[in-house]
Amino acid sequence: MNLPDWVGDVARYMLEEGLVNTLRIAGISLAGAVLIGVTLGTLMTIRFLPLRGVIRLYIEFWRGLPILVTIFIIYFLLPAVSLSLRFEALTAAAIGLILWGSAQVAEATRGAVQSIPREQHEAASALGFGWVGRHAFVIMPQALRRLLPPLVSLLVNIIQNTTIAQVIGANELLESGERSVERLTAPPPIGLGEIHSFEIYAAVMAIFFVISFPLTRLAAYLEKRLI
């Protein structure tokens, strides 16, 4: 099969810049979301009410807002409040995904930690573990097993939601595709004077599918195996 000449340059740009940025935003967001989410979720299980109320509000707030609105708030509203809160588009998108993702992880962690039977806490205390040691060495290893399937699903969601960064001009896969469409539409020598939005957006969908499908299968498999 012979591909048209324009495909090479467009594919290189979309894969080398767009896809790389997509994966970079996704990786950073996943790490941040897991770190903050697991911490907050574990804290939620402590019976100290005022703190729980604050974390609950955090979770419901960032889960309740559309991610697009969260990213708009970070990119357009924060700099209007204080100039020190000024972020690049890619960074703003990653922060938005971390806020949303950490709320999801916190809720899942709370459920996972609370699903560990009371006897496990008691046994660990009897062995002389304090609160931190008990959670770090006894409860969390068991909770993480239950957390793994939802975390893989979260990764799929984060990867897909990185596209929302396109709206503020961050050069992820969808944006790199749109820029390519615009260039190809321009008459020569810039582009071809041809519209290739169908092929390019279909290709963006295909790339996301190839990345996400094995991960959703993995999540389903883990769910069967680990729970």
């Binding site: 820029r179 615009e182 260039r183 321009a186 810039i190």
Partner: peptide
């Protein structure tokens, strides 16, 4: 970066 011929990605 999406407005040829003024600013675009070559």
């Amino acid at each position: 970066c999406d407005t040829p011929p003024f600013g675009y990605i070559g």
